[in-house]
Simulated assay, not measured.
Amino acid sequence: MSDPAGRLNIQLRRTAQGRVCAIDSTRPVMASRLLVGRTPMEAAALLPILFSICGKAQASACVTALERADGLTPIPVVQAGRQRLVAVETIREHLWRILLDWPRWLDELAERADMADMLAQTKALFGVCDPDGQLFRPGAGGTVIDQAAFDRLLNELDARLARCLFGLPADHWLETIKDGRGFAHWCETTGTGAARLLRHLLDSGEAVIGQSSVAALPEIPDAELIARLTAPDGAEFIARPTWNGCAHETSPFTRRAACAPLPDLVSCYGRGILARLAAQLLEVACLLAEIRTDLADAPASTPVESGIGIGRAAAARGLLIHLAQVEQGRIRDYRILAPTEWNFHPQGVVAQALMGLPDAGDDTLKRQAEHIIMATDPCVAFDLTLPTDD
């Protein structure tokens, strides 16, 4: 039976001319067409069910696109609430990888009990931040949250992260690792699973594997995005997107590239696996700090073209883009451009990183390749094969 979420089929082939990477996807990138013909309110309710992974980010991009198609701008408290929910979800998504997948790289057991605690914690935060479940409905009004409960839950989350991830409160950790030397010292002296994995990469020399020079996705104006997404070959663009003829990366690494200690890590170890894993840890700590503050309001926006809106959300794996076209109260067209299509483009960051792996036996090569794939996080299952030319 086929996987309804689709899969990535990745081949890393040795040839006489060098290593070649081929990436094919069966992801249903046009599944958003199921929203066509529905009202905006129906679409906003259905979309997080259709796209359950990063459901808050999907809902945020969806409602933004729908509201902009109608010329609506959410009130500041609503926009802040939506951003807060997406941030909590992003923390949860990073923890899935850090607590469940990273330990296996060291042949250790997944930290399931800690992850269960984190799931309960983030679910409780969702409930406090959006008690009536209406924040992602078009034209939502203000929601009064229980601030005392919110602060308590956030403090509990910080304490749990200190125990199982950072070894100290997140804000203190950010001060500790503000340069490459501090980061290395933290890796060497902290006993959490995350610190041990990063220390292993440093000690083994594998911190540098997975290099890529693929540039970060630039800021693209709404009008240009609309034109490209609705062009006759828009479906092909969504499946294998490029901009100005080039593949681009959108990820926690590109989002946090300017935040210490990433510039130092890139200077020492390049744009490889150490920097990418460190970016995920860094984003967890930064988001926790950002959730405590007043999040920035979205700029006022009107449709670039009557009845068409673009919505963007900083999802865990990169920039998520939705386009909605609404006519006479019904959706005429709906398109989604997900970060996986950028990052796992056949000429994208993962393909380049895999082709640049050092020569090694099949077992080592496959292990390193799987780690690079997981560090970029495709959000769907993947098959990795290492065929050879006869």
Rank of each mutant, 00 (worst) to 15 (best):
N343L: 00
P232C: 13
G329D: 08
G245K: 06
I220Q: 09
S204I: 02
P131H: 14
L287C: 04
C62P: 09
L8T: 05
C62S: 13
M30G: 03
Q79V: 02
G191Q: 06
A45D: 12
G191E: 02
G348N: 07
I49P: 05
P103V: 04
V326M: 07
V29C: 08
I75T: 13
L217N: 08
P232R: 06
D107P: 00
G361T: 14
P346V: 01
T230L: 13
P169H: 14
N244R: 15
P169D: 12
G180T: 03
A239Q: 09
T376N: 15
D294H: 15
A5S: 12
A351R: 01
P4S: 09
E370F: 00
I291S: 04
E283N: 08
S60I: 02
L282S: 08
L274V: 07
V349W: 01
T190S: 05
Q347V: 01
F51S: 11
P299I: 01
R112N: 09
I209S: 09
E156N: 10
T254W: 07
L72H: 15
I91W: 05
C286F: 03
D264S: 13
I336G: 06
L386T: 07
H345K: 00
T250G: 05
L66M: 03
V78L: 09
T15L: 03
L46N: 08
I331T: 06
T143E: 15
M41H: 14
L85A: 05
D158W: 02
L50I: 15
L202C: 04
D70N: 15
D359S: 14
I49S: 11
T388P: 06
A195L: 05
L386R: 12
D101C: 02
L153S: 05
A278W: 07
R14M: 03
L202G: 04
A227W: 04
L365N: 12
G141I: 02
R38E: 05
L106S: 11
L161D: 12
A113F: 12
A285M: 02
Q58N: 13
D377G: 05
N9V: 00
W105G: 10
A120S: 11
P40L: 01
L119K: 13
L295T: 14
E290H: 11
T190F: 00
A148C: 04
Q83H: 15
A260S: 15
C246W: 07
